[in-house]
Design a protein around this nucleic acid. Sequence first.
DNA 1: TAGCGTTATTCTTTTAAAGGAATAACGATG
DNA 2: CATCGTTATTCCTTTAAAAGAATAACGCTA
Lengths: 118, 118
Amino acid sequence: MAKTSKKQTYRIRGRIWIESNNEAFLGSGRVELLEKVKEYGSISKAAKAMKMSYRQAWELIDSMNSKAKNPLVIKQSGGKNGGGASITEAGEEAISTFKNLREEMFQFLEMKNKNLKV
Amino acid sequence: MAKTSKKQTYRIRGRIWIESNNEAFLGSGRVELLEKVKEYGSISKAAKAMKMSYRQAWELIDSMNSKAKNPLVIKQSGGKNGGGASITEAGEEAISTFKNLREEMFQFLEMKNKNLKV
DNA sequence: TAGCGTTATTCTTTTAAAGGAATAACGATG
DNA sequence: CATCGTTATTCCTTTAAAAGAATAACGCTA
């Protein structure tokens, strides 16, 4: 069999996140979770929508709340409909801050990809 | 005990890498490994210097070589001093391409960190 | 005060990644 | 042709992360 040449496609990729005291604070997954909590008003439903265990979702939110100056998510256990969760103003700001940042990174990567040598 | 307020330091962090056909090709660890191979002329010594198992180092180099247009590392098993490994011109270029890219990302992050809101 | 669906928490199991050990293969060299 | 230190490869163990199960706690509501 003859040696075949394969055309390879090279691409620069990147990931960005925000730390608080050198620990994970905000990343893509966490921000997506915040958006789902906003959409559903519930941690358990948000977790289900992301095919994530409730425990992990709870832990992520607990981590974010403890690291933010003000909580990003307000939770209520018990009460009407069993309770629920909602996003604070600080939570809204966290979402937009991170998404803007990520978008700028994508633009940076796109530019660098254009003149990537191998 | 009174409630104490903790001053938190927030920081944007990022990571960058190059893929070939959507698979890892070049990242910080791989490039550092290339540099060590260049320095020591040996995969096993490079691995030891990075406190990495020889197997992992070998696999990383095998992966890079198979994904690059031309091999980044030339290996010889057996022979003088048992053999060894060295960096090709393509390997040198891969190192500098990636390190330049990463440096530009750091500058990007530094700029974004300066006007980071929370 | 029983029922509901949520949040909150612990424990166990499962799965995946990393690490380590062992050994074969290699080729120049004396 | 035995020795050497490397590359090459397989197998097993260990470790860490993720997943899942189970249950308590909560507070409104009827």
